[in-house]
Design a protein around this nucleic acid. Structure first.
Lengths: 372, 372
DNA sequence: TTGAAAGCGATACCAG
DNA sequence: CTGGTATCGCTTTCAA
């Protein structure tokens, strides 16, 4: 019961006295099979416990994919990490190595459509993209979907765009964790504000919703102020925070749901508020690391960009190779980084990214990489 | 430069006017190749950017592995999750499907060696095991390593045992995160205790060390009591905690580094201390979920057993198939679960484990699974 | 020390 | 509607 050889197409064909070609067509719903034979094939293959040999399939298909990765230019480390994760996964999954073409655009909405146009022109087989303006990309993306090009969104979803999948952090978990922590750090009382880029992006709205709901449920004595929209403009974030601090000099805490925590910190500093403000930020980059280490930022919700990249590629490849649709929008549990675990966190990150470059050695083909 | 077909063994052989067999032997350091030819093969293959086709390799090798998984009987959900992760990964990596034989033993040290013996007798090609008594298993494991059977430790390492790899949570990150949180929750002052099973297990010692160090550095006004060893015996944990609470009625917080948080909670309750004690626990199981929801436990450090299982299998297979050694002991970043994000967390967990059972359908071969 | 060739299992195409 | 067969790239065995 355990040494038995694996069931192959041939075994099924043999059992039924037909050919492997027919069995194959039957199993894959290809046209031109007698419904009667089809049923029998399905029946027998189930009984025999047939499971296709993936290696053989890959080998015989022998396809090569061209995938385009359209993301923001890597000013911050976030997108560098995402791209790193994509490459990493592409190498780890060795077979079917994809031609990956990176196209970057400078800012939110800037050059995004041009990059997309170029992608279409290049006849990519699949696209991984950051929809910086989900609204305006929607029509483009639907066009692509009409020409059957699968699209995977990273970091932000583009609803109603027919994308194949979206990979992002679990926004509800992020917002609610931030809320509970904030309540605890503040001993369950005080005024708290939230900043985000725009409410129109559902990820940001969700973080806010989850934050508000959790605060109200778990820490009802906390007062929530109206959310601040910075439209991803640093100066706007700064100015609005100054206004906020002026209006509420007794503000106790602020949750920054985006990467834009530096302007907030600067504003707090300039308003002489930094020392007694509890800040919970998002993501991790050198300037923020300093602030955490210095105790100015209490915690940050790390969105695991590298893992996002890896999963985005995996989902896309799974679709291109096996035609498999991802179960759900893929949601990653965020990691919490505080002064306490900061160093261990950075250490692990460093070792993760290092073993990628080494992969281009000799007959070494796959690199071993762990999950986070 | 991008449309070029991939370089194959044949291309190299062709370029050198030799056969693929020789090229193959040269690349893999097999005996019986003229050093001269070997050098040239290496040279050319590097120049041509040769990268082996993994699918072809798997297909031609066509091996089948028997791997034994020796773990604790699943009284708690931890080991069920680990086993689930192993199965999941085994399916996801479809090719080379392994015969997985689960052997469980009832308690720490009980039946462990018998299980190991059975594993050896069954001639497994690889072993994934939880060394519940690293000390006593050491000699066994070395014996196995002499017979070339690779061993991957999960959850706990067995140092100096020649194991191939160890997969566990990042204990330093866990301890230090717990410490920082504890300090914050307690407003940086008060008496704090730590419980663990035995100091002899390095993972536990590390959590303690990291906890202590972080408390001293970041929250120097916190007083640390001596650690409590419960030897994984519930009654011992309970009794020692009662003593602790009697001796220190002003105890402010306690960090439970193991799964054994229930006896601690019970003791605190019986000592009328539960309401004002800040508890940080480890892992997640139904009884603990209730306590978190009820606000009795402030937070728990989730060790991601499912992911541990997945990685353990991946490492083992990577070694068995490609002969690749893992870079380092694999350390997972822990997840933080609090009342705030508890529900989102459970929801995600549920969806993760559900799509495994569905995998045994029809020609569906690989299941899509995300990283955590 | 090297070459030649037979698989591995699924796919796809061409005849019938 | 079905059978037969070449093919993918690597591994391995048998001869030379």
């Amino acid at each position: 019961m355990s040494t038995s050889r694996r069931v192959t197409l041939f075994d099924i064909a043999d059992a039924l006295g037909i050919s492997t070609g027919t069995v194959h067509r039957a199993l894959h719903d290809h046209p031109g099979v007698n419904p009667m034979t089809r049923m029998r094939v399905l029946q027998v293959s189930k009984n025999m416990g047939y499971r296709p040999n993936v290696a053989a399939r890959l080998l015989s298909q022998n396809k090569q994919f061209r995938v385009s990765v359209n993301t923001l230019k890597g000013t911050t480390s976030f997108w560098d990490e995402v791209r790193g994760g994509i490459l990493e996964e592409a190498q780890a999954r060795g077979t079917h190595e994809a031609d990956i073409e990176f196209r970057t655009f400078p800012g939110l909405g800037e050059g995004e459509e041009e990059a997309f146009e170029a992608t279409i022109a290049a006849e990519s087989d699949g696209i991984i993209l950051f929809p910086s303006r989900p609204g305006s990309m929607r029509t483009w993306m639907r066009r692509a979907s009409r020409s059957k090009i699968p699209i995977v969104c990273v970091s932000t979803d583009a609803p109603h765009s027919n994308r194949l999948a979206a990979v992002s952090v679990d926004t509800m978990a992020s917002g609610s964790l931030a809320a509970d922590l904030m309540g605890r750090f503040l001993n369950r009382r005080g005024k708290v504000a939230v900043t985000l880029s725009v409410l129109a992006i559902s990820e940001h709205a969700e973080k806010l919703t989850a934050f508000e709901k959790t605060v109200r449920t778990l820490h009802p004595e906390i007062t929530l102020l109206d959310p601040i929209e910075d439209h991803d403009v640093e100066s706007e974030a700064y100015d609005k925070c100054r206004e906020l601090f002026a209006a509420h000099p007794d503000l106790a805490g602020i949750y920054v749901t985006t990467e834009a925590s530096m302007p907030v910190i600067q504003a707090a500093k300039d308003a002489q508020l930094l020392e007694r403000l509890t800040i919970i930020a998002t993501d991790l980059f050198p300037a923020l690391i300093e602030q955490i280490r210095a105790g100015k930022v209490s915690a940050t919700i790390y969105q695991r960009p590298r893992t996002q990249g890896r999963l985005a590629f995996r989902v896309l490849q799974e679709f291109l190779v096996n035609g498999r649709y991802p179960a759900l929008p893929v949601k990653l549990a965020p990691h919490l980084v505080m002064a306490g675990n900061l160093d261990f966190f950075l250490e692990k990150q460093a070792s993760d990214s290092s073993n990628v470059s080494a992969a281009s050695d000799l007959p070494s083909d796959l690199t071993y990489n762990n999950d986070d």
